[in-house]
């Protein structure tokens, strides 16, 4: 019997997290009708509950924070604007869509920069600026590139050394 996440109460003293049903007050305390305090089942500290208005505001303003599992593959919308990435895979079911992207140079292994996410996605592949809509961007799986100049360096492995300025 797990209560929804929102119903958990944090003890301000010991930080223990518990449901209201687990408090001593809920288990037959004779004062529970007239007393509004909550008693922590861990440290027995008694404190007033958070006012409802405050909790509303907190819920309204806060983003739901989901724990992020450590991973190195992202879909394009998960990147921040301006991030460099390497394309890992196109997961689109439509062959024609994958092929269109391939024509513009979006194939596994190519380097891209996410320039903008709204109102439409814009990625840069080399000198090509490509606008995509969110549906398509979601189907692009990428890996973050560490280096800011990764595009230029990895794109042309050894190019800089081979063709010197004097050639």
């Amino acid at each position: 019997m797990s209560a929804p996440r929102d119903d958990y109460i944090h003890c301000p003293l010991c930080g223990f997290e518990f449901a209201k049903a687990d408090t001593p007050c809920a288990r037959g305390c004779p004062l529970s009708k007239s007393c509004h305090l909550i008693s922590c089942p861990n440290c027995c500290y008694e404190f007033p509950p958070e006012p409802r208005v405050v909790s509303w505001w907190r819920r309204l303003l806060s983003r739901p924070e989901l724990p992020k599992p450590p991973r190195d593959l992202f879909s394009l919308p998960e990147l921040e604007e301006g991030e460099h990435a390497e394309l890992v895979s196109l997961t689109s079911e439509k062959v024609s869509r994958r092929n269109t992207l391939a024509i513009y140079g979006l194939v596994p292994g190519s380097q891209l920069v996410l320039q903008q996410k709204r109102p439409s996605f814009i990625v840069r592949i080399g000198e090509t600026e490509l606008a995509l809509e969110a549906d398509i961007a979601r189907e692009i799986v990428v890996r973050r590139s560490r280096c800011a100049h990764a595009v230029d360096l990895t794109e042309n492995t050894g190019a800089a050394q081979k063709t010197g300025s004097g050639s």
Binding site: V95, R98, N99, A102, V107, A160, K162
Partner: peptide, 30 residues
């Protein structure tokens, strides 16, 4: 994932060939 798309695979292969040519002929500045 579906992999029956010949044309797509061929383009991927072509692009990797293109990248090789690019590496020999194209110099990128910062």
């Amino acid at each position: 994932l579906p992999c029956q798309d010949d044309e797509y695979q061929r383009n991927v292969a072509r692009l990797s060939g293109v990248n090789e040519i690019m590496a020999q002929t194209y110099t990128v500045s910062r």
